[in-house]
Amino acid sequence: MRYLIVLAVLALLVVGLFFGHSADQQAAFLLTVVSASATLGGIAFALYGWYSSKEIPDLVEKRVQERMNEMEKRLEKRLLAGQEAEQKVIAAYGVTGDPDRKIALLRQALEVDPSVYNGYVALGYVYWYEKGDLVAAEECFRKDLEHHPDNYQAACDLAALYAEQQEWTAALSWMKEAVRNRPESAKDFDNDPRFDALRSNRSEDYEKVLGR
């Protein structure tokens, strides 16, 4: 619209300058062109205002709706992935006598959704108690804490893992982290046989960590 107005004004100027017979005629014509330009500009502005009031809200609403649809699709995809991962974790719990099959199922679950609840913890248990691979178990517990920094269970399991290796300082440190994440868990350590050796060897520090 504005380009057409500019072209029309320029055309009028050219006509006036080339076909005006005197300076007075050209001056008068220029004044006419200026007046006409102002009028056309006002009309163009009014038309743009009308267009804006009609079209822009529709465009904004369309864009908002598109964004909402995209978010809904992403959320749906994430929910489906989470459900699939949870089903694989549950299936792994049902497997007996075949740790490699458990590991395969849990790995599949974590590929679908790395943050699936208890995925890395369950995998860590298989490596620890069924495969005897303490390094892999430790890695799993740490991975779980990357996705769930406040997970009391993963911190507790790391403490127990270090206690089994008689790395008392590390065990006490992870005990402290577990209690920080869940203060009411302090009493759970007393009933966990994995900490018997720690209680015997570092009883004072053990009680201190538990706030007693």
Rank of each mutant, 00 (worst) to 15 (best):
S53G: 06
I90V: 13
W128C: 04
V33G: 09
A85G: 07
A109P: 00
R194A: 03
A186L: 06
L30H: 05
Y162F: 07
P57E: 08
K54I: 05
S185E: 01
Q65A: 14
L31A: 10
V33N: 07
L161T: 02
A27C: 04
E146P: 01
Y206R: 03
R212A: 02
K88T: 00
V64L: 12
L80E: 11
F141S: 10
E70R: 11
V135R: 13
L10C: 15
V33S: 08
D190A: 12
G119A: 04
L59I: 07
R101M: 06
Q26G: 05
Y3N: 15
E146F: 07
D196Q: 03
H21I: 11
E177Y: 06
L105R: 07
V9K: 11
A186D: 05
K208C: 02
T39H: 10
E72V: 10
P193A: 06
Y127W: 09
V179S: 05
E86M: 09
R63G: 10
E72D: 13
G124E: 06
A170C: 05
V126D: 03
A46M: 05
M68C: 04
S200Y: 00
G42Q: 04
L123Q: 03
N118I: 04
V209A: 06
Y152K: 08
L75N: 09
Y51A: 15
Y129E: 13
K62H: 08
K208I: 00
N191V: 04
N191Y: 11
L31F: 14
C140D: 04
L59E: 10
V209H: 06
G20M: 09
W128R: 13
R180A: 14
L79D: 01
P99R: 06
G20E: 08
R180M: 12
W50E: 02
Y162G: 01
D98P: 04
T169S: 08
V15F: 14
L31I: 10
D205A: 04
Y152F: 14
Q26F: 09
G132W: 07
V112K: 13
T96P: 01
L105K: 08
F18K: 14
V112Y: 05
V126T: 08
F189E: 03
V34W: 13
P99K: 07
L79H: 07
D192T: 00
P114T: 01
S200F: 04
E177V: 06
E130V: 10
I56V: 14
V9Q: 09
V33R: 11
A92T: 02
D113V: 05
L75K: 14
Q108P: 00
R78D: 01
R74Q: 12
Y117L: 11
A163H: 01
Q83S: 10
A92M: 03
A197I: 00
K88I: 02
E61P: 03
R202Y: 00
W174H: 12
A11V: 12
A85C: 10
T39D: 05
D196C: 00
K73M: 14
R182S: 11
R107Q: 15
E139R: 15
G119H: 02
L75V: 09
L59K: 14
S37A: 13
L110D: 02
E55N: 15
F189D: 04
T32A: 14
E139S: 13
E139W: 15
